[in-house]
Design a protein around this nucleic acid. Structure first.
Lengths: 343, 343
DNA sequence: AGGTCGGATTGAAAGGTTTCAACTCAATGC
DNA sequence: GCATTGAGTTGAAACCTTTCAATCCGACCT
């Protein structure tokens, strides 16, 4: 009945077959093609399974079948709500396809990312979604070429060797700055860095384009660079802005992500500034905490769920469709205006 | 050399053995006991592996060995920073033990939790950590009895059938309210719910004990209940507090978690209150966003990393040590005082 | 020369599942 | 009464790795 502690390893189909007085092929049929088995036999087998506490051995199953029932997402930072929201989108698609989704957190460490990718490849997972530390790494292509479907999430790859799903960051930067120009700002700071991050470069790029197209002088779009996209760095940027002379001080700031924007907002409030009268702020990502900030944050929203869902669909297509062709999907961001710029 | 797309399933030890002109036992030795193989042979085998793009098949390995190199954490809500921090602690211990950690998000849905637990059991993972939707479910004990080590995280179990790791929530509630009493508050609101959540009950319990021990009248500790522990619910609670008459309105609020506290804080600022002069606020969990709030939040800190690390160590002990005994570990929380109560 | 030792290598067996060609047997058709 | 049908059942083979007892062989000893 119940199995005491220290029991030998769990029952196998063979044991079940013996207990039910059938062959092991029949047990397998009960599991995989119940319609081919007579009702009486099926019931007998099911009862034997229950009594023995039979648990299918997925390893053996996978070994035989060659494929698993699992998808994995190797994320850059499980602590950043943006990525967990992307993961939620992936999960939706995985669930619909009847697959389990395992999340792995590389925490931006390249050796941990590599270790997870190896582990997942050895497990023969059905597909890997990854937001890589280095989106141009050749190891990703090699991985895909050895047969595991790979989709790059939230990073664009120049070449066509892999599927990727991303959001147009140049457009996002443009939207943010056009909004600020519309609101009458003529001296604006871009806060973010380091410039090695593709996202940061692109968002700044878009900001500059919008600025130039409005005919405004480049020197009035100043860059306040940070060493990471964190709350702490946002605060420190705020302190630097406070240190500027009144003539140079910007009337608005566009931050490379919401964490930075929240830090900046916090520092601004500490300095006694009114938001947005003394300083308007635009963030990026529109994480849930953006709306919940002391002054609700205007932010550039990315379709996070869509991003995840599309990535999952691409990886499933690559895994199941022999005519699969690699695609680079780019979504459009959208500005969500709130009190931090609207007054 | 490189393997084109549409290649048949990857090379096996047998293929490597053939390519290197050795037996398959030798290939296995190169992988598992390199010291037993002569240098020349080892090099030849390694080269063959590289040329064929050999990838170990973890399923076959596991099938033979009976155990995997994986731990899993089934979390209640991947979007709550508290749980991702616990996961980070688990990861530390898993990494030290040379195991991979897979995260699964049940999203508080009982059927998804069940589906993940089944999947993980079938995969024969080395251990499962879980913050369950229902900590008293019998299915967890059954799972453990069938042979998979299980540790309950952040929930206490009455009986001794399982290991569990938690933080003393009664003490946490006590600390929060004692702090408020120390700061001179004599009318305090507890904000949180629903009371079906064990944490909520315990924290309120602790609050009441501290209140009674200070000799204060029970009616001055009012309960503002919410239907979930979210930012939105915090805002709504704030609105309800604002609606109270001046005589009844509390001078301080103790929130069941930081998300609620952040919502309340936001609403309070909108109402034009000064924090903490018009309303002091204490949160719970001390998530990173608590310190980054517009008014840095006083909060009850739980040793999140420790929680995760200890849980992982218990599950490893259960998996490796035949003399393992189930333990209920309870950590002490700690109050972190910040501007939201200190003025 | 004969014997011993030990490092290096071998190959069969085991682990649990799924598949599939082959088989059984009762019912149906002629 | 014999052939045909088909639903139900069977068991060997395959998937890939690891282990371990057995074997090989060159070096060393007497």
């Amino acid at each position: 009945m119940t199995v005491g502690p220290g029991t030998p390893r769990s029952a196998s189909v063979k044991d079940v077959a013996a207990a039910a007085g059938v062959s092991l092929g029949t047990v397998s049929n009960v599991l995989n093609r119940p319609d081919r088995v007579s009702d009486a036999t099926r019931r007998r087998v099911e009862q034997a399974m229950a009594e023995l506490g039979f648990v299918r051995n997925e390893s053996a199953r996978q070994l035989r079948a060659g494929r698993s029932h699992t998808l994995a997402y190797v994320m850059l930072d499980a602590g950043n709500p943006f990525f967990t929201d992307v993961a939620a989108g992936i999960e939706l698609a995985a669930e619909a396809a009847g697959l389990a989704l395992f999340l792995c957190n590389s925490d931006s460490r390249i050796e941990r990312e590599a270790s997870y990718l190896t582990h997942l490849e050895q497990q023969r997972v059905q597909g890997i979604l990854v937001t890589p530390v280095d989106p141009d790494a050749a190891s990703l292509v090699a991985l895909a070429q050895r047969g595991t479907p790979v989709v790059v999430v939230d990073r664009v790859r120049r070449e066509q060797a892999l599927c990727s799903v991303a959001v147009d960051d140049v457009l996002g930067g443009r939207l943010a700055v056009e909004h600020l120009i519309d609101r009458g700002h003529r001296r604006v700071a871009f806060v973010g860095g380091p410039p090695t991050i593709g996202q940061v470069r692109d968002r700044l790029d878009g900001a500059r384009k919008a600025w130039a197209e409005a005919g405004l002088p480049g020197k009035d779009l100043l860059v306040v660079s940070s060493s990471a996209l964190t709350v702490a760095e946002g605060r420190s940027a705020g302190a630097r802005i406070a240190g500027l002379t009144a003539r140079r001080r910007p009337t608005a700031a566009f931050c490379a992500n919401d964490l930075v924007a929240l830090g900046l907002l916090q520092q601004a409030i500490r300095s006694g500034w009114r938001i947005p009268d003394d300083l308007a702020i635009v963030g990026y990502d529109d994480i849930d905490f953006a709306e919940a900030a002391a002054v609700p944050l205007t932010s550039v929203r990315q379709p996070r769920h869509e991003l995840g869902r599309m990535a999952a669909e691409l990886v499933l297509d690559e895994s199941g469709n022999p005519e699969h062709e690699h695609q680079q999907v780019v979504f459009q961001p959208e500005l969500v205006a709130r009190a931090s710029t609207l007054g």
